[in-house]
Write a protein that binds this DNA or RNA. Structure first.
Length: 393
DNA sequence: TATCCACCGGAAGATGGGGTAT
DNA sequence: ATACCCCATCTTCCGGTGGATA
C-alpha cells in the first residue's frame, strides 16, 4: 500500500496538499468545538506557572472527543507563552508505558537518569525520580494519557505514590500536577478510596462532538490539508452528520476524510463527492479491521476465525462452548496446543473490547449461562475474506 | 422449591522470557 | 553461579449465576 502511495503522488496530486494534516495526530492551532475546554485547562494550570499549588485534573470522555488534542495544545502553548515559568511538562501515553515501573522508567529518562528498562526494584526508580524532581525545583505537569489502561493492568500504585508525594513535600516547594486522561468514563470508581482521596482531581468531561462541530473540524482540515475547491461542501456535511449520529468520534471523521481524498485521487477525480465519501466509510472500516487483526496473536485470530466460521454457516448466536469446540479443531489443523476454555472465554471478551465482534450474555436456564456472539464488525463473509487473504482457511 | 446446566469470572500461582548485581 | 527484579500470558481452582426443569 505504501508503495502505491508513492507512485500515486508522482502523477496525481490534485486533491491532497499535505497528508500530515489529515491525520488525527496533527494538532491544529485552534480546536473547533473545544475552546472552552482549552480555556478551562489553561486556567487550571496557571497557579503552577505562578509557583503556587495547583489541582490535579482528569479528562473523561470517549475516544475521539478531543482530550489528547486539548492537553497537547495547552501545554505547547503554555511553554511557548511562559518560557521561564518554573514548570516542566511531560506527556506520556500509557498504552506504551502501561505499568508503574515503565512510567517511572520514562520519568527517570526525562530527568536524565539512565536506568535499565527492567531488572531494578521499582522503589529505586521512584527514589531516583524523587531526588531528581526535588533537585530541579520545578513544578511537574505530568499528563498520563490512556491512564485507564495503566490502572487496569497494574493497579493504582503509581497514581497513589505520585499524588501522595505532594503531601510529603514541603509546603512551599514545587509539587506535581497529575493530569489523567481516560477513555472510560467510570475510571475514578476503579481507584482505591485511599488513592482517590489524595488524587481527588478536578473533573473535565468531554462529550461526543455534534454534527456542526465535526463539520468545523473537517472544514479546517480540508482548508489546510487539501487543495482549494477540491471537495463538495455536501460531502463534508455528510461525513459530519453520519459520524455524529453513530459516535461523535472526530478521529473517525478525519479518517474518513483522508480516505475519501485518497480514493478520489486514485480514481483521477478532481474533487471529493458524497459518493466517494460513502465508499470511504466502507474502506475505513475494513482498513481498521485488517490492521487490528494483523496485530492479534495467533490464538486470538483462531478464536475469531472459529466464530466467523460458525456465523458463516448460519449458526445463530454461537456460545462459548461451540466456539471453543470449533477453535480446538482449528488448533489441530495448525498443529498448536489449544488453550483452556477459561482462557478462550477471556479472549472472547478481549475481541469484544477491540470491537471485532460483539458479545452478549445469554441466560439459558437449564442450558446454562454463557456468552454469546451477537455479530462481527463486518459481514461474516467479508471477515472470512480477510482471513483467506491472510493465508487462513 | 430445589436442583442443575454450562458456562462466568476472580484469585493465585505457574511458566518462560527479559534483565541487574555480586 | 546465584539471587534478586520486572512482566505478559496462561493454567488451576473454585464459588457463583438465573431460568428451565423435575
Amino acid at each position: 500500500m505504501e508503495g502505491y502511495a508513492d507512485v500515486r503522488c508522482d502523477y496525481q496530486r490534485r486533491i491532497i496538499r499535505d497528508r500530515r494534516i489529515l491525520r488525527d495526530s496533527y494538532i491544529p492551532k485552534e480546536l473547533p468545538g473545544r475552546q472552552s475546554e482549552v480555556e478551562k485547562f489553561t486556567n487550571l494550570l496557571l497557579p503552577a506557572i505562578n509557583n503556587e499549588p495547583s489541582l490535579n485534573i482528569v479528562f473523561l470522555g470517549k475516544p475521539g472527543t478531543g482530550k489528547t488534542a486539548v492537553a497537547k495544545r495547552v501545554i505547547t502553548d503554555l511553554s511557548e507563552k511562559f518560557p521561564s515559568a518554573p514548570v516542566r511538562y511531560i506527556y506520556l501515553n500509557c498504552s506504551r508505558s502501561n505499568t508503574a515501573y515503565r512510567v517511572m522508567y520514562a520519568l527517570n529518562r526525562e530527568y536524565g537518569i539512565l536506568v535499565p528498562p527492567s531488572g531494578y526494584p521499582y522503589d529505586e526508580l521512584y527514589n531516583n525520580f524523587l531526588a531528581a524532581f526535588k533537585h530541579t525545583r520545578q513544578w511537574l505537569v505530568l499528563i498520563l494519557d490512556e491512564v485507564d489502561l495503566l490502572v487496569r493492568r497494574d493497579g493504582d500504585r503509581l497514581i497513589y505514590s505520585l499524588s501522595r508525594l505532594n503531601d510529603e513535600i514541603g509546603y512551599k516547594d514545587p509539587g506535581i500536577v497529575l493530569v489523567g486522561i481516560s477513555n472510560t468514563p467510570n475510571f475514578l470508581e476503579k481507584l482505591d478510596p485511599r488513592t482517590l482521596s489524595s488524587f481527588s482531581p478536578e473533573r473535565m468531561y468531554f462529550y461526543p462532538y455534534r454534527a456542526h462541530q465535526l463539520h468545523d473540524i473537517l472544514l479546517q482540515r480540508a482548508k489546510e490539508g487539501l487543495h482549494e475547491s477540491s471537495w463538495d461542501d455536501g460531502a463534508i456535511s455528510f461525513i459530519a452528520a453520519r459520524v455524529a449520529a453513530e459516535s461523535g468520534d472526530a478521529r473517525r471523521a478525519i479518517d474518513v476524510l483522508r480516505m475519501a481524498a485518497e480514493l478520489a485521487e486514485r480514481d483521477g477525480l478532481d474533487r471529493i463527492t458524497t459518493e466517494i465519501v460513502k465508499r470511504a466509510f466502507k474502506s475505513v472500516d475494513e482498513e481498521e479491521v485488517i490492521i487490528t487483526i494483523r496485530s492479534l496473536p495467533l490464538h486470538h485470530r483462531l478464536v475469531l476465525l472459529a466464530a466467523t466460521k460458525l456465523l458463516l454457516r448460519n449458526e445463530e448466536r454461537p456460545g462459548t462452548g461451540k466456539i471453543y469446540y470449533q477453535y480446538k479443531r482449528l488448533t489441530r489443523d495448525y498443529y498448536v496446543r489449544p488453550l483452556t476454555l477459561r482462557r478462550v472465554s477471556g479472549i472472547l471478551r478481549e475481541l469484544d473490547e477491540q470491537g471485532l465482534l460483539s458479545i452478549r450474555m445469554s441466560y439459558g436456564g437449564s442450558r446454562g449461562n454463557t456468552k454469546v456472539v451477537d455479530g462481527l464488525v463486518l459481514e461474516p463473509a467479508e471477515m472470512y475474506q480477510i482471513f483467506t487473504n491472510m493465508g487462513f482457511t
